[in-house]
Amino acid sequence: MTHTQKRIIINNVIMTLSTLSAVIGMAFLFWILGVLVINGIDALNWNIFSQVGAPPGYEESGLKHALIGQLYIVGVATFAGVPLGIMAGTYLSEYGQKSKLAEIIRDISDIMMSAPSIVIGAFVYAIVVMPMGHFSAWAGSIALSIIMLPIILRTTDDMLQLVPSTLREAAFALGAPKYKVIIQVVYRGAKVGILTGVLLGVARVAGETAPLLFTSFNDNFLNTNMNEPMASLTVTMFNYATSPYEDWQKLGWAAAFILSMFILGLNIIARVFLMKKRIK
């Protein structure tokens, strides 16, 4: 066998192996997706949206309490996390720029983006749940907003930097003070980018379970009081899935399906925004 032949054979072997691993990887992932869709659609019915959780065995059992709880917890977290993240990102891109302080904030925030979310839950337990003496939806929202902050900060910083500096200079030349330049020119130029970051941030925290386990805890009934423990889709899913009752497990799959579709939907919208932006 010549050297060339040997190289070609090695090449073919490795290329086959890597295609195979791609196929195996994709197969596993589509298996999960398939399971999710089949079980999810099977479990979906109108009761899911109109009824609250019932003891196992009851026909009229749903996820209304968890859906509304999820909306409250993630909504409040977004309400707090987004403006703070945008402001902090604005500082990095417009004021701090390449300064030492800005670089440190960028690095630390980047690390926090990958830090274990359950630790954030433990932290919020210590600062909110312990002083209050009981679990509450506020605690859950605070945990999620801490997780969201670095994501929004990072995308805002990146997106504002993409705004051409000539735009800023033109506005400065007209005599506009810096805050007006930022709000009326830079934000406007980076609108789509910032929105994309917000969508991705919401998608990320909506799927978080670990930090909610011991902050917002769970509740089997419809509750809209942020001072009380509140059900969320993720924690409800966890409790139902690990229960021995088949109809609860079914509800768990319905929750998993709704949540995944919501998160995938947000991701797809964010992608479409980004693609449009690139084409422009």
Partner: peptide, 11 residues
């Protein structure tokens, strides 16, 4: 990669 890890656990 965006699918929440709780779903992987459930699967």
């Amino acid at each position: 990669a965006a699918i929440p890890s709780v779903i992987y656990g459930m699967w």
